Simulated scan of single mutants.
Amino acid sequence: MKLMWTFLYMSSLLCGISAFQEQPLKKRNVLDYTDADIEKLSEEWEKDDDPLEPDELPEYKRPPAKIDFSKLDMTDPDNVLKVSKKGKSVMMFVDVNPELSEFEAASVLSRWQSNLQNNHIVAERYPIDSKRAIFKFSDGAQAVDAKNFFITERECSHVTLEGQNYIGQHASASTVKKLEKMNPTGKVEKVKKDEKKHTEL
């Protein structure tokens, strides 16, 4: 007898839930909406909207930019990187010289971010270690200019951009040796002090 009452109670409860879910959204209380209901409403609202412009879409939905490789100077890796990463998010690892204290390293990284912003290069800075930070650029073309700025700074040890290490002009010999041992697959580029390709900020 007890089993029969339990069965009747459970079946009536299930019928009530299914009847509640079948109610049209207009008749239901907003507080009772599930995530699926809200997603369904959102899709219905956006159905009749005009399509967004490509630059208003999220980055993963944007159509890729067309690159004319015949007009591209393939001998200049910075130029190739600028053109291929234009409009795409790029992250760069920046390490300061290990001789700096934690306070000096934090103030240097903060100053560099301000210098970039003063030069209209938008970068978000995320510290990941006491002497290392990630700089995220919403436009990858700006990352090349930022890299050229970083490697000319006295406090910069090295920069990693798109899997390639760039050693700062004032980096110590031990840093160069350490990077060459750490990165057997990538390329370590030592920037010449007389090279004038960097961006003055």
Rank of each mutant, 00 (worst) to 15 (best):
A105C: 06
H120T: 07
A141V: 04
E155C: 02
A123R: 02
I151Q: 00
V30E: 12
K66A: 15
I67T: 11
S89F: 02
G87A: 13
K66P: 05
T199G: 00
K197N: 09
G16W: 10
L25F: 09
E102K: 15
Q169T: 13
D129H: 11
L201R: 06
D139N: 15
G16V: 06
D145Y: 04
F93K: 12
A105Q: 00
K178Q: 14
L31I: 06
R154C: 01
L201D: 06
Q113K: 15
P51S: 07
L52M: 10
E200T: 08
R154G: 00
Y33D: 04
I151A: 00
D73V: 08
G87E: 10
K2Y: 13
S107D: 15
E104D: 14
D139E: 06
S84P: 01
E44M: 14
Y33N: 03
L81Q: 09
V188S: 02
V96C: 04
L8D: 06
R28V: 11
W5C: 10
I128N: 01
K27H: 10
S172T: 15
F150T: 00
D32T: 15
Q117A: 11
A105H: 02
V144S: 01
E59G: 03
I128H: 03
Q113M: 07
A171V: 03
F137Q: 01
L13E: 09
E180S: 08
K47R: 14
H120M: 10
P24V: 10
E22Q: 14
N148E: 01
E22G: 10
A171K: 00
D145N: 14
T152E: 07
N97W: 01
E195M: 06
M1V: 11
L81V: 10
S114D: 12
D78E: 15
I17P: 03
D35R: 12
Q21N: 11
N118R: 08
E53R: 14
A123M: 05
H198E: 06
S172N: 13
Q169G: 05
L3V: 08
K26W: 08
E99F: 04
A146Q: 01
A36N: 08
E44D: 11
K88P: 01
K192S: 12
P24M: 08
K88D: 11
Y33H: 07
S12M: 15
D48I: 08
A171N: 02
M182H: 09
E59S: 07
T160R: 03
L25Y: 10
N97E: 07
Q21K: 13
Q142L: 12
M74Y: 09
D37H: 13
K88A: 06
L116D: 01
F137G: 00
K71S: 15
N97M: 05
K136L: 11
F20E: 05
K197L: 09
R111F: 07
E46Q: 11
P63E: 08
Q142A: 06
